[in-house]
Design a protein around this nucleic acid. Structure first.
Lengths: 225, 225, 225, 225
DNA sequence: AATGAATGAGTGTTCATTCAT
DNA sequence: TATGAATGAACACTCATTCAT
């Protein structure tokens, strides 16, 4: 009765197709309008088959959030691994984050809606990313690279900056549509167009903002003394 | 066929009750699960009456977003009006924002979900708030109170900081619930408890973060000698 | 509680506006989709006022059928009054009927739907028209102008001919749309175009059909011997 | 989202039950009052199941009209196949038509209402039947069996005769109910009683009418010497 | 493992009618 | 006489989920 792990290679494949379909469908329609049948259609399998792998729509949603969270953290940590100081690390991490956002808009859309659908998943997602920031900030603080600001508060602030800048410049792209008429329609796909990349100028200004915030000593002077 | 403005005092009253009920219901259930009947029940009126004032669920949603947006901006600008410099202004504005968040959690919940429901309303909301920041930052920059950072980028960054800190400390309060079990449930009300106020320490650290980010001149020197 | 006759000139005027609006609205939307509010909107009066003059939607429908029936019979009898023999009379009557159909498409649309809405009204309508035919045919039979065919049967047959030819050439006009695709749509207005007049050739062939049917002696020879 | 063809024998059976139920329900209640739930109740299946086979109420309505049209034409052509001349052919065709009407009153009721519901279906229905008439009349004209009257006009006239005589004597039976009281009620079932067969006398007079109309040569001379 | 059929509760929305003013 | 507000039953339609095959 309860969905379990796939026991065969064929089952493995089916489950994988379902998760991939779910990312597309949730991203495109949102949780409420992402019907199971849309997911199974996108995956090219029968409706009933869904329940061999997931107990409910909520479960596959949570697994997808988990999956995206894992991948975005991997991308960020991989990017910042090769760096030599905190600011370079932030720089690389943000670049990776924006790139991931461009490649997987589902991250945003799904996460934001998770507020209602699965608050636990939402909090877990943010908390995990923040934990990575905190560790990095704490180490940088101990090394004197940045000021002695509270790493937790700074971490949440950084998280917010990345989310908002990413939303504004990656997801929206050039289409800000602040005109009143746009409010009327609801079906429009807000991701239909847009540059989907943070302009260099914006990125640099954001980094300058962050450097000042963290009280980073000017790299040129400090790095490799 | 099309909903119109109330033409009598009685109608005015009814529409007001509907908007108030909508804030509660959308905030509690989210857009998808906020049925019209829940709204009319909460307002204490008949289901059909709803359609005398709104054409659809989407329309009352948009009006509510508009309403909240208007009120939060009012609260923020009122708070920062009496200040003498940009940093004090930010300080007062953020306090007002967090207070509004505590009083009207609907703002967050509804806005975040609007990404799918009514993207135009969402963008308009953020854009309008950001415009207020930009004006303030530009003036402060011209006055030499802050660095010459791009006001638009800084404004979006500030917006993100406020949103994330507010979510973490006002909405979640003490309950971060990073435990896995919480992921399972979906019906839990994440606002059932929580301190609902940003701790002073957090607020001060956030302000220090912002001051550094903006390159604020006087204060930075005074506060951390 | 029960709607009564108007007691003032103002009331008379209001009721007249309602009947006229009803003809337009029933004709355009059909009984089911002709809401009271559409009728009162078309009449330019308040919704509640409707019930001062009619007890229900059905009642105004029946009155409208009654009204149209009265007018079409008047038009037909007026036209055939000045004729000298049965065939000329039929000819004039059919012309008047087709003209009335062109001017008041509501007659057809409303009557045909009355099958379900108000069967009594439907039967009364047809029966009354047929009674006129019967009287004329009986007199013509007695006068030896036509064969001794049963006037009742012949009358219903004539009624059917008029209805079908009128539908085909007046209501449909040139748009027969026998293509399968047309079946899909439902909202299309079948009266949007069309010639709205029976072509002369069709009318003459129809009359020839009828003359043969009634066994009318060739006019040229018989008329004014 | 879109209803498809049944893929299993069980599905085939279910769809068949739905069409049969639809004939009964549309015939009894008319389109507007024939709710989906009435149809599924009559079919003995769940409400949701309906949408596995039809996209909407309109679609099953159109399929039913198509179905009835097909069957009535089959009945008519089968009846007239074994005849030797046009008049016998008409005679057999009309008998078959009246018989079908008696067996399937839905034909009338549904078709007449189709004027509003699905004008395309209505026109297609009449046009197809008329086409059969035209072919027969044209052949008979070429063979000299009837006069050289325009077959198209004559065909529509015949169609009208059959429809009106059928309505009057098959559907209404003995109950003409021209009394005013009958106009008031709407829920009365006009098919509750009635002879449901065209009396022989009426049929013969109708045929005499038609023979004269078509200028049939042999029969006219033989029958009324 | 896979599937298509079936379900029924639930949704947004309409509308004839009543009523207080 | 006139009206706008209010109502609640009813409807077409959707969808997560169960089940027999």
């Amino acid at each position: 009765m309860s969905a379990g792990l796939p026991r065969t290679a064929r089952g493995e494949e089916t489950k994988r197709k379902l998760i991939e379909a779910a990312e597309q469908v949730f991203s495109r329609f949102g949780y409420a309008d992402a019907s199971i049948s849309r997911i199974t259609d996108a995956a090219g399998i029968g409706q009933g088959t869904f329940y061999l792998y997931f107990d409910s729509k909520l479960q596959i949603f949570n697994e997808l959030v988990e999956d995206l969270n894992h991948r975005v953290r991997l991308a960020m940590s991989a990017a910042s691994a090769a760096t030599e100081n905190r600011i370079d690390s932030e720089r690389a991490g943000f670049r990776a984050f924006f790139q991931f956002t461009a490649d997987h808009p589902a991250l945003y859309r799904v996460i934001r809606e998770a507020e209602f659908v699965s608050p636990g998943a939402l909090r877990l997602h943010y908390t995990r990313i923040v934990e990575g920031y905190i560790a990095g900030l704490r180490a940088a603080g101990a090394a004197g690279e940045i000021s002695d600001i509270d790493p937790t508060v700074a971490a949440w602030a950084l998280m917010g900056i990345g989310e908002m800048i990413g939303m504004r410049w990656v997801l929206w792209g050039d289409q800000v549509s602040g005109d009143d008429e746009a409010v009327e329609g609801s079906g429009a796909d807000p991701f239909a167009s847009g540059t989907r990349a943070v302009p260099e100028h914006v990125f640099e200004q954001m980094m300058r903002f962050i450097e000042g915030a963290l009280g980073a000593t000017r790299h040129a002077e400090v790095r490799n003394p």
